[in-house]
């Protein structure tokens, strides 16, 4: 079952990539990349258990941190680009 889960995650990642390629707006692409990133976290943890080395879950943990920060960073970038001057600095 755990291998089936890995395959399902890979399928989901491919579908997210298709959306990232198709996505009409930039936000569709960011959304797809976000989904791709969180699924990568899950795929890494699943692979840790498939290969029988659960110690490597640290990598998934770190990837989850990096994924969140990078999505927020990319969004901030486009938000500043998109908003009129001063509106993006609301917080």
């Amino acid at each position: 079952m755990i291998i089936a889960t890995a395959v399902a995650l890979l399928v989901v990642m491919v579908m997210a990539l298709v959306r990232a390629l198709l996505g009409p707006t930039i936000h569709d692409r960011i959304l797809a990349v976000n989904v791709f990133g969180t699924k990568t976290v899950l795929l890494i943890s699943v692979i840790c258990f498939i290969s029988g080395r659960p110690e490597f879950i640290d990598i998934a943990l770190v990837y989850a941190l990096i994924n969140f920060v990078s999505i927020i960073g990319v969004l901030k970038y486009f938000e500043y680009q998109g908003a009129s001057a001063g509106e993006g600095a609301s917080d």
Partner: peptide, 21 residues
């Protein structure tokens, strides 16, 4: 726990950014 707390934050940031654009 981390995904539980960050995924709505990322979602809200995405929605707000889309709204602005």
């Amino acid at each position: 726990v981390f995904i539980f707390f960050t995924s709505p934050t990322a979602g809200h940031a995405l929605a707000k950014s889309a709204q602005l654009s």
